[in-house]
Simulated scan of single mutants.
Amino acid sequence: MKLTELVAWLDAYLEVEAFEDASLNGLQVEGGEEVTKVAVAVDSSLRTFEQAAEVGADLLIVHHGLFWGRPLPITGTHARRVKYLLERGLSLYASHIPLDAHREVGNNWGLARILGMTDLEPFGRWGQQHIGVKGRFPNRISLRELADQLEKELGESVLVHAGGALEIETLGIISGGAAREVVAAAEAGLDAFLTGEPKHEVFYDAFERKINALYAGHYMTETVGVSLLADKLEQEFGLATEFILLPTGL
């Protein structure tokens, strides 16, 4: 498949122009003209690029790209990363907020479906757009059961701040670094809020606002979107795909 055709499809499908974002969403580094295999990963790093090349990928799709809101000189570590991609003809495509928010292959809606939630609705805003999701469980679930399910599905220990009732029905989800949105979740009347990593400055909000907060890892909560997008590319175009797992523990 032509790289230009696949990039055009990704741009439209992920609606990359709809979101204000520091990330340079879309094609960040152009490699070869043809794509027969796509690797997906959460982060951009030299090790990620090396593994993508090792599995024979022509295109690497990441959640966290190389370019964030300001020009960077092509020197040092940044230069080594870009040079590696160019020398091997490996293209790099990034989708940050668009892949958080997408209702089919996004981190948040995807995780809600993995957890078996129903009555899904948009929750949490990023500028003028919704980024997260809220919903309910068909049957009330204990906080411990939910944490155990998350650990089973994502493979990461879950930190729980049990500020609310120990039996929950409703949950809001925003992956990654959205700890401050526990306030919005409490104001929305939700029983619990799930994100990736905690923030010291909002530690007490969960307890004072009587809502449960669960932290399942910035990295692991953002493996969902790239994995679902890989599945979509296989179904849509018959492309071979491979997920590159390089957990940060954060």
Rank of each mutant, 00 (worst) to 15 (best):
M117V: 14
V158K: 08
A216E: 06
A192M: 12
T221H: 14
A94W: 03
T223P: 04
A22H: 02
A57E: 04
F207K: 13
E153M: 13
E87R: 15
A8V: 12
E30P: 01
A57G: 02
D231W: 01
K232D: 00
V158W: 06
K152D: 09
A178Y: 04
T75E: 12
V38E: 00
R80W: 10
T36C: 10
F19M: 06
E33F: 09
R125H: 07
D148C: 08
V133I: 13
F49T: 09
Y204V: 06
L86I: 15
G163M: 12
F207P: 05
E201S: 06
Q235K: 15
G172E: 08
F123R: 10
G124C: 04
A162I: 06
E50P: 04
Q129I: 04
D21C: 02
E17I: 03
N212E: 05
A162T: 02
L6R: 09
E17R: 14
E20S: 11
I131F: 00
F203C: 02
L27Q: 05
I173Q: 15
P98G: 08
A79I: 03
G32I: 01
A79W: 12
D58N: 13
K232A: 14
L233E: 03
M117D: 03
V29A: 07
E169R: 15
V183I: 15
V82K: 11
L46P: 09
E34G: 00
H161V: 13
P198Q: 10
L250F: 15
G26D: 08
I174M: 11
F243C: 01
D100H: 07
R70I: 01
W109A: 05
